[in-house]
Amino acid sequence: MNRLRRKTVIITGASSGLGREMAKQAVAEGARVVLLARRIKRLDKLKEALEKDYPGSDVRTYRVDISRRADVENRFAEILADINEVDVLINNAGFGVFDEAHEAKWEDIETMFQVNVLGLISCTQMVLPYMKARKSGHIINIASQAGKMATPKSSVYAATKHAVLGYTNSLRMEAARDGIYVTAVNPGPIATDFLTIADRSGSYAKRVARWLLQPEKVAAAVIHAIGTDKREINLPKLMNAGSLIYALFPRTVERIGRKAFFKK
């Protein structure tokens, strides 16, 4: 229960969904958690609940909009001045909007890249110098199965997650020289508010309801991987198998699966 004792874990997008669940499980493992999100009231409410459930726990909350570089720089400067150490960064903040390419709104496209890609890179750059100086640390990037296999109506979202995987794979090789682990997490659809925003019609969520991952299960896999050299976490296994087959036989998968893919 104290596997992460004395470890400082920063989690972005911690106010709800997967981020919230990872925060709970990290505290249960004895970690000091630093929770980041735009919705500070939700963070403070979560902090209060965690401190009640785990007396003596160390929970810090900071409001940050990771789509804004200046905001990220200022907030991380404050965090590092307060605690002066970072063991784990979990880049969890992100969102998607499902539209066909010709219908995607430019403001949605910009925001997805700012949050999912640039925000993730920005937060990573804030902690890397500290981890490199200490010759240890772990960066965990929440990507998606969409980063391995794109489907209709998610062209922009898939593009951002392809970018996350490209960045993560390169970073992993660079960081290994300094004893820093880098893990990519590629979940399929999770039963969180993500789908409420991404799928405005609600039809996709209904169609995949039986396949939805529970955030508790994904969070457990992520928290368990902290401090290990796990390259990737891929869930669910069946969807990951589809991604692997797609990598080998893309034309065949696209032809056979086209009708099903368009049901999103």
Rank of each mutant, 00 (worst) to 15 (best):
N116T: 00
F113S: 00
L50S: 07
L35C: 11
S144E: 00
A81K: 15
F98V: 01
M22R: 05
F98M: 14
E51S: 10
L235D: 00
K148T: 04
T228D: 09
M149Q: 11
L35Y: 03
K24N: 13
I226R: 11
N84G: 13
K230P: 01
A220C: 04
K45L: 12
D193Q: 12
A23G: 11
S155G: 10
S122K: 03
M22V: 10
A70I: 07
G56K: 06
A198E: 07
P250I: 04
I223E: 04
G94R: 03
V208E: 06
M173E: 14
P152H: 03
V156A: 01
V222W: 01
R38V: 03
A31R: 06
E100G: 11
V86F: 02
L35G: 05
D229E: 13
A163P: 05
H102G: 06
K132L: 11
K45A: 15
T151F: 11
V34G: 03
M149F: 12
Y204F: 15
G30A: 09
I66L: 15
T160V: 00
W106H: 12
E216T: 06
Q125C: 12
L18G: 01
S122I: 00
A28C: 06
R5A: 11
E110N: 13
R69M: 13
A28P: 05
I140D: 04
M126S: 12
M173L: 15
K161A: 03
R69I: 10
K230C: 14
R39E: 11
Y181M: 13
Y167D: 08
S136D: 12
